[in-house]
Design a protein around this nucleic acid. Sequence first.
DNA 1: TCTTGATCATGAGAAATACTTATGATTGGT
DNA 2: ACCAATCATAAGTATTTCTCATGATCAAGA
Lengths: 302, 302
Amino acid sequence: MIVENLKVFVTVSEQKNFSRAAELLNLSQPGVSLHIRNLENELGAKLMHRSPKQVKLTEAGYILYEKAKRILDLYDEARRDIQLLQDTVTGAIHVGASFTIGEYLLPRLLAEFVAQYPQVELQVTIGNTWEIVQKVRKKEINLGLVEGNVTGEDLVITPYMKDEMLLVAAPDHPLCAIRQADVGKLQHMNWILRESGSGTRAFSDLFLQEHKLEVQRTYVFNSSQGVKEAVAAGLGIAILSRWVVRKELESEALRSIPLKGIKFARDFSVIQTKDHAPSMAIERFVQQLMEDAKRLKANGLG
Amino acid sequence: MIVENLKVFVTVSEQKNFSRAAELLNLSQPGVSLHIRNLENELGAKLMHRSPKQVKLTEAGYILYEKAKRILDLYDEARRDIQLLQDTVTGAIHVGASFTIGEYLLPRLLAEFVAQYPQVELQVTIGNTWEIVQKVRKKEINLGLVEGNVTGEDLVITPYMKDEMLLVAAPDHPLCAIRQADVGKLQHMNWILRESGSGTRAFSDLFLQEHKLEVQRTYVFNSSQGVKEAVAAGLGIAILSRWVVRKELESEALRSIPLKGIKFARDFSVIQTKDHAPSMAIERFVQQLMEDAKRLKANGLG
DNA sequence: TCTTGATCATGAGAAATACTTATGATTGGT
DNA sequence: ACCAATCATAAGTATTTCTCATGATCAAGA
């Protein structure tokens, strides 16, 4: 224990007996003597009169005793409060997440959460945005983490983080040669897309539609990994979250193409049903999610 | 330091930076990490989120932080108060003591006192009761510890301990053969006495006079040791404090002769001048003297 | 009076812990 | 892609703590 020295001192003071204190503390009697001697050396004062018949606090000892008792109380309180915090947060959480969030952001968050609340049982379901929203509605999961503009009267939707979307291509793609690409350059391209129902797909569709871009060919994958591989192989271009392509951008396997005057962005949101009060565990989970997002933002990510 | 773990934790919490905390604490950065890890293991909860860009307390960490600050404050208070106690008790004490007290009781008391109040400079003068009283009057010494019935309008005399006097003789002395000696048997004996002015001498004189005892011969020594040697050599008998002959009685070098119906006793007293307020050091010294006497009494001595 | 029991101190060696240096991993900035 | 800052990890060393054995003190009882 952290304050063991003081614990020993208080026990001896109250027992007025080194040997008895040693037993109570599961220690040898010389061990107890040592503790007291250490304290006396550190404080530069004799703390107790010792004799075979009587152990009695000196004045200095009494001063320390009064403080030490309060210190031990405080430490116990701290331990109890922390324990209580963890005990309160029990039960199970079933989290749903879209592929982007579930594969690239959630793992670290979960690790932190279980470290702090080890009593909570966590289950994760990954699916595309549409699937997750459906499961939240059917209460098959407690909360969903998805991207894009989900709507629904029966749902509570809380954006918690900005997500930057990037237009990516293989490094040897013609677009990469252009100094300042603009949207006009994107006509008649081959596009790699996620399947329908995916938030990333919805985002891409919206972009293509808004800028009236003609598409030459499309390839559809139902995983981010597939999309990335296809883009890297030079099969086409894609719009993906920065989180998804972070590693590939660093290793130059993919390249991000900035588009003049266009900043792709969307929100990551928490989706919950309206009706019943969430459990303590869920509340804490959301709280930690928010804090984590804040921390990422402070670090210049988010 | 006793609460070093918490000190490290608080420092890191406030600096929000392990390395900086390490510098402040004169520790290596891994050392700091270790402290925090130990705390986390002991409390079974993660205390801080660590990242190169930010160190932040978890909820459990915040709980501990609040308590830890108060614990450190309490410990500092304790240390300060104890230091204050010892600082207050400074200066010099000049103690005078009669031979009996000075040689047989004072040494242990002094050892205890300097352990508790190391800043006090102690000087001791040993002399017979009369000499000590004179020195107190002349303020050559701060206080005197003497035996017997000292009187004096100008002095404060505080008895603090009973002293038992014993009639002692060599083991082969005729008196030792008598089963129940009484005062009558003490006529025409050889007596070993201390010099005039000694409290022990005054006690002996009073005893001889009260019981109208004729003395055959007297030998006078100005030290207890001399008296004991003379008695042991069979030169005569003497009345001495139990404290003086304790060892000799145990080793059978001398024997105590109980006298029917007579219990020798006198007081040990503290002698101080009336006029000026004693220094803190002197006050504490007297206080400790009293406590020590109480402790001896509790142990069946006094 | 001698022994006995209870108690605390001390010393030596063993076990546990803390500390440091060197190195690795992560992250954000240039 | 590299650099700087920061925390984690590993291995070896140093320090501290612990226990066992023993010694000293003291009072009580045979």
